[in-house]
Simulated assay, not measured.
Amino acid sequence: MRVAIIHDELMRRGGAEQVVLTMLKAFPDADIYTIAYNSEGTYPEYKEYKEKINTSSFQIFSKSIKLMQKFYFPWGIIAMKAVKVTDYDIVIISNTHCAKYVNIDSKALVFIYTYTPFRLAWNPSSYSQYNNAKGVFKWIFDKVISCLKYIDFKAALRGDYFLAMTEETAQRIKDAYKVDDIKIIQPDVKTRNFYVSKQPGDYYLVVSRLEHYKKVDLAIEAFNELGLKLIVVGNGTKAAELKAMAKNNIEFKSGLSSKELADLYANCKAFVFPQHEDYGITPLEANASGRPVIAYGKGGVLETMIPYDVHESKCTAVFFNDQTAESLINAVKTAEHLIFDPAFIRKHAELFDENVFIKQFKSFVEEKYEEHSSSVIKSH
């Protein structure tokens, strides 16, 4: 049984790239296809699979996320559509945008694990560039988006089975691609990479790409007023802007090792998660470190966190209901007076461990492949 795994791009460190690493544990002999690969930009574990990674002609832009994004339309799409994935029994597509654009022969059974439908096509308002565009630029943006919707929808038709992270993302997939039967398998957290500290420190923590929709500015605004220590880990197009608005109680870090990041998780007072995220691996990483989460109560956290009501020892998070600095400030003040149970929080995170994902994912793919093979044999 030959297996191929296709992922949008391997140029950064994010939750989707972690999921692919877990997929590779489920199918270790799989070949990997992607628009571009940057060994220094993404997780170092991918170096173990270097000989199996196949890239598109768009690899020339792999040293820069900004260049990739700048020339993605139309050159990235054209490059990905030219990639041929043939002679495989199973093709697993891990994607938000371009992974499903490749050429797949009719022989393969195709599984599409969609984190969320392509944001630029189906939710353009999540990008500040779109919101700020005016006049002819807005007209051009809308034309590009209309084209992307057509390409994205047509490519999705090749999927035999769709998988989603949560009920919310499953509904988005249904709305965008008009499919009904969607299997939900929640992404994993690699609990072995994190530990519980006996004596956490005095700071709060954000780990995020520094982009508009991540709402890190909300956390900075809140902690500017609170005056409490906040460490922000990450990089992105909004880095300079966010650093400029932050007061001296806020520190920025990037390019950390796995050990350095685990130490920051283990020793924070709480993890701050201000965005509406499709799923959110980082809150589970905080939980795997025995630390509570202060989160905007929408999206994936509704399915992964246990919110505080009256039992502080039996919760993993404090939610705030409005995506405002004031609402976040009130949640931080609430958390300041609670006594959490690190052992309970860690045990909760273990429900989402990678071994759980591997078992569910591998079982689903193999079961559907056996059903498919049996039907092919019967038809002959």
Rank of each mutant, 00 (worst) to 15 (best):
165 M>L: 12
208 S>G: 01
309 D>G: 09
95 N>P: 04
66 K>L: 08
314 K>G: 13
324 T>R: 08
194 F>G: 02
228 L>P: 00
236 G>Y: 03
42 T>Q: 02
228 L>K: 06
91 V>T: 11
331 A>L: 10
346 R>F: 10
14 G>E: 04
215 K>A: 12
72 Y>V: 09
344 F>I: 02
166 T>S: 02
96 T>S: 15
162 F>V: 03
126 S>R: 12
49 Y>P: 05
193 N>A: 12
182 I>G: 04
343 A>L: 15
34 T>I: 00
344 F>Y: 09
144 V>I: 15
377 I>A: 13
292 P>V: 04
190 K>T: 11
263 D>N: 10
115 Y>H: 15
33 Y>I: 07
39 S>Q: 09
269 K>V: 05
89 D>C: 14
150 Y>M: 13
300 G>D: 07
156 A>S: 14
198 K>L: 11
144 V>Y: 05
42 T>A: 00
80 M>S: 10
140 I>W: 14
111 F>L: 03
176 A>V: 03
125 S>A: 05
17 E>G: 04
48 E>K: 14
345 I>C: 11
179 V>L: 08
86 T>D: 05
345 I>E: 11
194 F>S: 09
345 I>P: 12
22 T>G: 05
250 I>N: 00
91 V>E: 09
42 T>L: 02
192 R>C: 09
81 K>F: 03
97 H>I: 03
257 S>W: 06
107 K>L: 13
157 L>N: 02
245 M>Q: 12
120 L>P: 04
123 N>F: 11
90 I>L: 01
104 I>T: 11
83 V>M: 12
265 Y>C: 05
80 M>I: 02
56 S>N: 02
184 I>T: 11
149 K>F: 06
161 Y>L: 05
77 I>L: 10
369 Y>S: 01
67 L>T: 11
88 Y>G: 12
95 N>I: 06
67 L>G: 14
78 I>C: 00
119 R>Y: 07
174 K>M: 06
218 L>R: 07
226 L>R: 02
279 Y>I: 00
249 N>Q: 08
239 A>H: 02
129 Q>G: 00
363 S>F: 15
150 Y>T: 15
